[in-house]
Design a protein around this nucleic acid. Structure first.
Length: 248
DNA sequence: AAGTCTCCCAACCGCCTCCCA
DNA sequence: GTGGGAGGCGGTTGGGAGACT
């Protein structure tokens, strides 16, 4: 049994006070991030290290973009979720100033409902599938919403998606959607070069390894997917724009 | 005005992987 | 090679705020 990361008896829990925020911010500005377990003691906080990390990452970081999600951000989340599933940290990595927690909350509270209201099951939305039906070629940020608005599931869709959604073809499974036969024909339309390793910058190998470790362990997805290789190989926090490399 | 309901989001929890001794 | 500590991630929860009756 793993021992807890800190002695919870003596720890504060719940909402952070302004004073605690200030203490943590001051400490990190002075000493930098990392060594989270030592930070509470060093900064004089009665908090668990993990709690400090979460507070900093999700709330105190100076580069955070707070407030409502823009339409292009929504579009990107929908696209990436269709591609990667609930890999919130990967998705957030494509959205400058957004955190995985924020993206996850936004998806659960807004986007999944929005998709459902449009008759789309967010759990089984397949990027390639729905793009194929709409012949969206090289779409840019801002275009997906209108495409979704026009989306009407047909009996054909339902039959096809029910088959596809079975077993290893779960859309939410990051590994499956790009392995699908039709992805090879659809993804090039997005100008996402999934077929060539040449798109991977040098040094991507370590990131690939990192990404692959978080994949589900099933044999079907054992082989790391090229979308993840590509995504994780990119520098995070790149400006969000219609020319974002993923959707060039 | 008061009580109840619903929604949202910050924070927690537990599991997993990485790293290092 | 292995065991344990630390960091990271995704799922879940709880409480506050606003909406509704």
């Amino acid at each position: 049994m793993r021992k807890p990361c800190c002695d919870k008896e003596d720890m504060n829990k719940g909402a952070w006070s302004q004073q605690e925020d200030q203490m943590l911010t001051d400490y990190i500005k002075k000493h930098g991030e990392g060594h989270w377990r030592n930070i509470p003691k060093a900064a004089g906080l009665l908090r668990c290290g993990k709690s400090c990390r979460l507070r900093w990452i999700n709330y105190l970081r100076p580069d955070l973009k707070r407030g409502n999600f823009a339409e292009d951000e929504e579009d990107l989340i929908i696209k990436l979720h269709a591609l990667l599933g609930n890999r919130w940290s990967l998705i957030a990595g494509r959205l400058p100033g957004r955190t995985d927690n924020e993206v996850k909350n936004y998806w659960n509270s807004h986007l999944s409902k929005k998709l459902k209201s449009m008759g789309i099951d967010p759990k089984h939305l397949r990027l390639s599938h729905y793009l194929a039906r709409h012949r969206i070629h090289g779409f840019t940020a801002g275009e997906t919403s209108s495409a979704i608005k026009n989306y009407q599931p047909s009996p054909h869709d339902q039959i096809k998606s029910s088959g596809i959604a079975s077993d290893h073809h779960q859309v939410s499974d990051a590994g499956s959607c790009v392995d699908d036969d039709d992805s090879s024909t659809i993804l090039p339309d997005l100008n996402v070069d999934m077929a060539s390793d040449s798109c991977l910058p040098s040094g991507a190998a370590t990131e690939e390894k990192k990404a692959s470790t978080s994949l589900p362990s099933e044999d079907a997805v054992n082989e790391k997917t090229k979308d993840e290789q590509y995504l994780t190989s990119r520098q995070p926090e790149q400006p969000l724009s219609p020319t974002l490399p993923l959707f060039r």
